[in-house]
Design a protein around this nucleic acid. Structure first.
Lengths: 330, 330
DNA sequence: CGGTCTCAGGAAAGCGCTTACCTCAGGACT
DNA sequence: AGTCCTGAGGTAAGCGCTTTCCTGAGACCG
């Protein structure tokens, strides 16, 4: 492995000069030396050791991202936004999948901390369990204490910069739409009850129901397509009076559609997130859209621009109802 | 930012001792010192500087992954496999999106090289353009010359460890299926002609056609859903005699379905990759499955186990036809 | 009771790079 | 002619950690 010293020796200059030439420092250097050094670099296929550079410069260049799972379309979309902004700012992005495990999240915070990232963005870890949340909070504080910056996506224990999708409002939009259509027997398929995303969307749904003096039957699943399919099958068998299903994300809504097809039933279904698949299933899915890419972009922007004063900044992004063909009057 | 020296001072020991205790080195240490050091670590919230560790240990711990785009379901699936194996081996994974830009790929190889990764896995960059390919090859050699390991997924210029999905066979399977159904006027919607994936799948299709003494009409698109929709719309308008469409990936097949729905036509459609969405569109998509997660797992395994001798290892993974409802006799 | 082992712990030499500071010519000025 | 810049380059001190080698003190032996 060629080092700077090798290059310098090869070109017959000091490491200082070689370093300056390679990094294009403002210090003036004669053309001849520059050429010699550059030739040596090419010949030796020299690639600077990033770790040594980080250590010597002690500037933080990378940023970390902790999400549930990049393969999940929801987070893939968010990640896309995060990457766009980070790359535009010349940052290296380190992505970590937490699989919603608070323990793993803490490990990753430490790992990113150890790697001297300038900032960490965390998405999809709004835990309600206060033990896990406060330990996490602890780790985050330790990171921030060293000058690191943290931005979170979604409601979160940790006080600090955050971009908040308006999940409550989205839930309300979905509920109101169903009630306006004339549905009265509505079943909600929620995600894990420990996630704030679930809680907030559900709260909106309940607000809409209360407005109508109605109630909504809630069952919990796991935000996956198969989970949605299984629970819908059960629901259809157990409660034939339900006329509409509000799934708290599109994956489960797609599963619900599959279960209905299998059972030969046709209830109204509304999804959440408006993922690309929504327009390609039959019937095309009515859904509550959250601008996921934008969510990511704004979170990364927050994370990279140091706060003017120390005040935590909070940005809200609105939800929007996208009407398609999966909802109708009973 | 607390350093090892801070911890050592705080505990009243030398940095050597502190380091040994923190890293659990085999050197024996009295319980009392161990307790003091660990207490100091907790109190100062010490997190070791990973860059300094890398530099001092000069062992390579991370691995790099270069893919087209993690948000793309195809690569998301592959990445999942890569991560599983890497994490199981205690490696940090650095993911880079190349967006199929050879220039960016080279940058990323250098970047990963600079970060001293132990290995790089590259997926989805089988370029035919020989200039780009040979420059890439150059970069890879430079990396390998320093002891780094490279594994590629898919056919590739670079001679070395590779796992190859059997795209040609998959194309053949798709073609034969359509011909067996009795189709004669078949249109293929291919991806960019510069990718080996496109070329290989197409070759299989042609082999099936030749067997039948038939030919296939080929048009090129870009592997995206919208690209598939647009080109299918055009196709339907221009050539009413076509009875079957072979899309070279599922995204384009889904687009084709949408275009057909819009035009009120019902041709047979076969996709490729058997992505999760395939079973949820209507009609459910017949597709050629490639075990993507396994592809990733095997590539990472190859990358992490140094070759027994220096011989490049090649693993083939077979394609499989998944019958659903989008294909029928004309 | 002097000599040899063992063991706990420390001193210090790097790992590969950046950069503040220093040196040494050769002009420009007075 | 002597002083002072100014440019071009080198010297060396770290950055935070690991690890080799060394030291000093008991334990043990004959």
């Amino acid at each position: 492995m060629a080092t700077l010293a090798d290059v310098a020796r090869h070109a017959g200059v000091s490491t200082a000069t070689a370093s300056r030439i390679i990094n294009g420092s403002p210090k003036p250097v004669t053309e001849e030396l520059r050429a010699r050094v550059l030739a040596a670099v090419a010949e030796l296929r020299y690639v600077p050791n990033a770790h040594a550079q980080m250590l010597a410069r002690s500037n933080r260049n990378a940023v970390g991202v902790i999400v549930h799972d990049v393969s999940d379309p929801y987070f893939a979309e968010i990640t896309r936004g995060l990457q766009r902004v980070a790359t535009a700012n010349g940052r290296l992005v380190i992505i970590c999948n937490s699989f919603r495990d608070p323990g793993r999240e803490m490990e990753y915070i430490d790992l990113l901390h150890a790697h001297q990232v300038a900032a960490i963005v965390i998405a999809g870890s709004g835990y309600l369990d206060s033990t896990a949340a406060s330990e996490l909070d602890d780790r985050m504080r330790a990171f921030e204490a060293t000058g690191g910056r943290i931005a979170v996506i979604g409601r979160h224990q940790h006080p600090g910069d955050a971009v908040l999708p308006d999940n409550e409002e989205g839930g309300y939009l979905a509920g109101r739409h169903l009630f306006e259509l004339g549905h009265r027997a509505i079943a909600a398929i929620a995600g894990p009850p420990s996630l704030t995303t679930t809680v907030d969307r559900l709260a909106g749904l309940h607000r809409a129901a209360t407005e109508q003096g109605a109630t909504i039957h809630v069952t919990h699943s796991d935000f996956t397509r198969d989970g949605g399919e299984a629970i819908t099958a059960k629901l259809l068998a157990e409660d034939p009076s339900v006329t509409a299903i509000a799934a708290l994300n599109d994956s489960m809504a797609v599963g619900a559609l599959a279960a209905m097809r299998a059972a030969g039933r046709r209830l109204s279904v509304i999804g959440f997130d408006d993922m690309p698949i929504a327009r390609d299933v039959t019937p095309a899915l009515t859904s509550v859209r959250l601008p996921l890419t934008e969510l990511g972009e704004r979170a990364m922007t927050l994370a990279l621009d140091p706060a003017a004063d120390g005040t935590p900044r909070t940005e809200h992004v609105p939800a929007e109802l996208i009407l398609r063909e999966s909802t109708w009057s009973p």
